[in-house]
Computed example of a mutant assay.
Amino acid sequence: MSQPFQLAACAEMLWLDKPMHWRVERLTEMGLGVGLWNWPEWDLDKLDRVGANFTIMNGYLEGRLADDHGADMLLKSARETVQIGKRLGVDRLNLHGTGLGDGGIPIWQHDTVTGNMWLKAQDTLNRICDLAEEESVVFTLENLNLLDHPGCPFGSTADVLALVSAIDRPQLRINLDLYHTQIGEGDLIRWCEKCLPWIGEVQVADNPGRCEPGSGEVNYVAVARALNDMGYRGPVGMEAFAAGDPEEALEAFQSAFTL
């Protein structure tokens, strides 16, 4: 048996009754990287002392890609967040087409994305890349499904791939969330193949329920084998709730991605 991937898990979604620094410590003890969402909610001094490998964190607190005001907000927020990410040693800083509010509902909703919005989004992402190059960090753009995140511009896997491949700069990668791809498009292995040259991280959860691999309909063992066969050696993060005991959920995740 071998472990070709760097495995991590989102601390925000596990052991919900425990303090965040405890969750980060436990994931680190288990040999896993750690994913975070919004940094202002947590005691950064305590997190910093753990010595965890933070694989990914939200790279902004507000803003959006496709209009002037939203882009300026995004760049200002990202510039602040970059410093927190560098303090914690975060590997990748994550973006979406627009900021998300309560329950993941997009703050700025658009059912139709115009040509001008596409051009503005590309301009905004190039500005993000300029910031990333200046600060020696990497951003990712994550796909989202439109059932859980209605009206999110640039949410589909196809849209994220189109934007990141058009920018084609090393400072911007895809956060390929296969839970969202399963709901939005399906055909996971072929989407992995299409996105492969630009993937910065793969995130997983089963469907329905958004719990650990093996709790739903997705054959993540087959996905893991396919990722390995196509030469992917990057991080795989479980961004999922636990169907039962969190330790057992993490064991199921590790098992699915150990070949």
Score class of each variant (00 low, 15 high):
residue 247 E to M: 04
residue 1 M to H: 12
residue 47 L to Q: 03
residue 8 A to K: 00
residue 73 M to Y: 00
residue 220 Y to I: 07
residue 19 P to A: 14
residue 121 A to H: 06
residue 69 H to C: 08
residue 259 L to G: 02
residue 181 T to R: 05
residue 225 R to Y: 06
residue 84 I to V: 15
residue 25 E to R: 14
residue 11 A to Y: 01
residue 44 L to I: 12
residue 161 L to W: 11
residue 129 C to A: 14
residue 100 L to Q: 07
residue 33 G to A: 04
residue 204 V to P: 10
residue 98 T to D: 11
residue 247 E to V: 12
residue 235 P to E: 12
residue 45 D to M: 01
residue 194 K to H: 11
residue 30 M to C: 08
residue 236 V to Q: 02
residue 119 L to E: 13
residue 89 G to R: 03
residue 203 Q to L: 10
residue 212 E to S: 12
residue 63 G to S: 10
residue 200 G to E: 13
residue 143 N to F: 04
residue 55 T to P: 01
residue 96 H to Q: 10
residue 60 Y to P: 00
residue 216 G to C: 08
residue 219 N to T: 05
residue 69 H to L: 15
residue 238 M to P: 04
residue 173 R to A: 10
residue 17 D to T: 14
residue 97 G to R: 01
residue 5 F to T: 10
residue 82 V to Q: 10
residue 218 V to M: 14
residue 229 D to I: 11
residue 6 Q to H: 14
residue 71 A to G: 14
residue 235 P to Y: 13
residue 77 S to Q: 13
residue 79 R to I: 02
residue 243 A to E: 13
residue 16 L to N: 09
residue 23 R to T: 03
residue 66 A to F: 14
residue 187 D to H: 12
residue 110 H to D: 03
residue 140 T to P: 01
residue 10 C to L: 14
residue 194 K to A: 15
residue 57 M to I: 12
residue 103 G to Y: 07
residue 138 V to Y: 04
residue 4 P to W: 01
residue 154 F to I: 09
residue 79 R to M: 09
residue 36 L to R: 01
residue 123 D to V: 01
residue 67 D to G: 03
residue 42 W to P: 04
residue 45 D to H: 08
residue 240 A to M: 10
residue 146 L to G: 02
residue 106 P to H: 04
